[in-house]
Amino acid sequence: MTNEFSCLSSPISTTAQTDLTSKKIFDRGFERGGLYYFGEPPPSHPTTSGLQAVVLPASSSYVYRLEGRKSVVIVFNYFLPLIMQVEGTKSPEEMLTILQRVLEESALILVATRLDSAKRRTNMRLREEQDAAYRATLEADQAKGRQRKEEQEWLAREAAEAERKQKEEEEAHERAACEATEKKAALARMREEKTFSLGAEPEKGPDVTQVLVRFPTGEHKGRRFQSTATIQSLYDYVDSLGCLEVESYSLVSNFPSVVHGPEKLYLSLKEVGLHPQASHFVEFNS
């Protein structure tokens, strides 16, 4: 069959009527002139017949049933089946006229049904579009959520790293401050110890040597020592003043220019020719 209906000119043949969906055979009948009938083939001459048509909901199955000498014919118009009950034998031309009249009489219902079907399809398409838009919006929101989460995690890592670095800097500063304090305290103790080791400054006398020390800043410091005091005493004196920020230096006499280094620390001032007076300047060691 076509979308509407079709009639084929063919001899009478026996056939089985079957539901195409369930494959169930309802009854046996025959085909004549492209139409299907139930029961035994009727006489060749036309008989009195009656016509009754009804519109049913759309169906994908061909359903036939037998009601005495009445036959049921299903004609599909697009997706809407029209079921007619025909009594007696009809020629193909008469059946075409009947079918056409049924279609015309059912035109309003068919149009309304088609419009309703189109409306349902439109609503379905709208729902599908709305569902697709909702899914797209949901995916976009989820992507934004993931991006916000990643940004928050990155900010949290950055904040933790900054806090860690700040803590390390604070600890390093505290250690440096403690070391500076300890170093300062150690220098203060060292100056006190060396000042104590020098003893009291002697009065002027024949066995007393006057020593003058010039620092790189241009500052001069002087003190009297016993002529038997060692070169180490001169270094202890310079250390006790706290005028230098370096630990490695040498004392150099002016005239003549002699470096009094580690090899002379335990020689006396008199032994190295610095009695009765001497002048030295401080020279930093490289």
Rank of each mutant, 00 (worst) to 15 (best):
A112R: 11
T14K: 08
A180F: 12
S22T: 15
D207M: 08
L212K: 14
T122L: 07
P216D: 10
E219C: 06
K184G: 07
L269R: 09
Q226K: 13
L51M: 11
E169G: 00
G199V: 11
P202Q: 09
V72N: 03
E67I: 09
S22E: 14
K184D: 03
A177P: 00
E40Q: 09
P216E: 08
K144F: 10
K149M: 04
Q142F: 05
Q85F: 02
L20P: 03
M95H: 02
S197K: 14
E247F: 04
L115H: 06
Y37K: 04
S117R: 04
L66P: 00
C7R: 10
V75P: 00
E93P: 01
R101N: 15
R135S: 12
P276F: 04
P11F: 00
K149G: 02
V102T: 12
V75Y: 01
T14M: 10
L269I: 13
A143V: 03
L82M: 04
E171V: 03
K149D: 12
R125Y: 02
E139R: 10
G261V: 03
S59L: 11
P262N: 11
L51N: 05
A177L: 09
A58P: 05
K119E: 02
T14W: 08
T228H: 07
E271W: 01
V72A: 05
E105Y: 05
S10E: 15
S248A: 06
R164Q: 15
A143H: 02
P81R: 12
K90R: 11
G39E: 10
A53Y: 09
P262G: 05
Q52R: 08
E193R: 12
F255E: 13
R191Y: 05
L244C: 01
V238G: 00
V111Q: 13
K149Y: 10
K167A: 10
V55C: 08
P206D: 12
A229L: 07
T14Q: 12
R148I: 04
M84K: 03
R164Y: 12
R164E: 15
S233L: 00
E182M: 07
S91F: 04
R157Y: 04
I109F: 09
D207Y: 10
D27L: 08
E87L: 05
F255Y: 10
L267A: 12
V72F: 06
A112F: 01
L138D: 14
S22C: 09
S59M: 13
K270F: 07
L274H: 06
S106L: 05
L267M: 07
A200S: 10
K264I: 01
S257K: 08
A278V: 12
S61Q: 14
R148H: 03
K165F: 06
E153S: 09
E245H: 11
M84H: 04
L80D: 03
Q100F: 06
E245Y: 05
A16Q: 14
H280R: 06
P276S: 06
H275L: 05
G261D: 14
F38V: 12
S22M: 07
A200H: 14
Q52F: 05
T113W: 04
F196D: 01
K24Q: 14
Q210G: 08
A136F: 06
A140K: 15
L110C: 04
T18Q: 15
E4K: 09
R127D: 14
T113Q: 09
P41R: 00
E283C: 11
D141S: 13
Q142E: 15
